[in-house]
Design a protein around this nucleic acid. Structure first.
Lengths: 225, 225
DNA sequence: CAGTTATTCAATTATTCACTTGAATGATGA
DNA sequence: TCATCATTCAAGTGAATAATTGAATAACTG
């Protein structure tokens, strides 16, 4: 059943890659790995999966050529295998957003309702960073910040934001970002900040897209190794 | 199980799109539709599926937002719903080709062994078309040619090629193309032509990629409507 | 070397998917 | 209106997939 010709054999292989992407847990694992390489345990914990289950999904991703691993001592670090993985995910998002009513509803109903302002483009942020007319705020957890973040960004995880507002300069506009276009952290952060009188907007998308655009990323941080 | 938050809901929807791509038959149907819109019957015949089965797969593709339909009389024409579908397929191909050993083997063993010459890039073909220093040969079946082809291309389906060699000018280099990067027709055509003393090369990829690059496509032909 | 820890494997069960068959729509044309 | 044709629906069967559990690797630590 698998070999009528070379074309069928190739399509069967392409189908394996696509099928592997076809599971919400694996997409979430990929989103996590897009922040930076991770061990099985951390990925399991971040996604709420059991370790065995996460391990199984990660191996499917590896068999499909979507992620690779690196061993360091007893830990195995997983990361996306290819830049094209991000293209794939972006195309997937675009198609779903434009052609699936349910996705459009969620995006409008949940995300746009919390922030009807246009996000700041990467280009614009770069310009304003040079003029120092803006503060960049990374609202992801500290470990993700340590794996890579925007140059000059300060890190206040969303859960700590209310308690640490005093660290922010009320005279500067704040640009917040997190994991990607559908990560809720930056939406919540912007809402919180505006409610307290700060001028705040979101960055378009998140760190992985910034990196994929070839823009500079800083590794390490206060608690980073 | 389906709604812990908006992000999970979105990932579940993205997974539906990816899962739908995860079947060799549906990928083949999409490749066919990438040549131009088609009825269920024609798609079933071209892919060797039963009509009922093709219809089911097409409806899955439609539910996933990957294709749309248009009714004309008693026929329903299917076509890709979105330009991003081609990006998706291209990313899928790239990842599979670079990261799956089996795909690399098929590509090397089957395709490269028949044509170790570099294909002609779209850009180069455009340049040489302007200078008229080349003949463009479409070796797809006539019905696909009629749905859209390169400007100035002549159509000799592969099966008829040997019988119609006299129509070709032996003094011009021939650039052959067909459905896409893994379509065997142009490989076979180039091999046949070289064996008969013609100077022949392939165009990189095929018609859908030419169209996706924003280059001009001519609709209609000898038997076209 | 034995113990510890991170990860993977193997076996199980519940669920989902693919394909076939035969009947049902929905538009056309006599 | 009735017959026809393209397409879709519904039901059933066999195969593939997902998540769980407990055992098995493989590398470090004492």
């Amino acid at each position: 059943m698998s070999s009528q010709g070379p074309k069928q054999a190739l399509f069967a292989q392409f189908a394996v890659v696509a099928k592997t992407l076809g599971h919400a847990h694996r997409l979430e694992l990929l989103e996590q790995m897009a922040q930076g390489e991770r061990t099985v345990e951390v990925l399991a914990q971040k996604t709420g999966l059991s370790i065995a289950n996460a391990s199984q999904h990660l191996q499917q991703l590896r068999r499909a050529g979507l992620v690779t691993t690196r061993r360091e001592g007893k830990f195995i670090f997983y990361r996306p295998a290819d830049e094209a993985v991000f293209d794939l995910l972006a195309a997937l998002r675009g198609i779903a957003e434009r052609n699936l009513a349910e996705v459009a509803n969620v995006v409008r109903g949940y995300f746009q309702s919390r922030d009807d302002l246009e996000p700041v483009s990467r280009k614009e942020l770069l310009r304003r960073l040079r003029r120092k007319s803006v503060a960049v705020l990374d609202v992801r957890p500290e470990d993700e910040f340590a794996l890579g973040h925007l140059p000059g960004a300060m890190n206040i995880p969303l859960r700590a934001l209310k308690a640490r507002l005093s660290e922010l300069d009320p005279s500067l506009e704040i640009v917040a970002y997190c994991r990607g276009p559908y990560c809720v952290l930056s939406y919540e952060a912007v809402a919180t900040l505006r409610a307290r009188g700060f001028k705040a907007r979101r960055l378009e998308d998140g760190l992985p897209e910034w990196r994929a655009a070839g823009l500079p990323v800083v590794v390490g941080g206060p608690k980073g190794s």
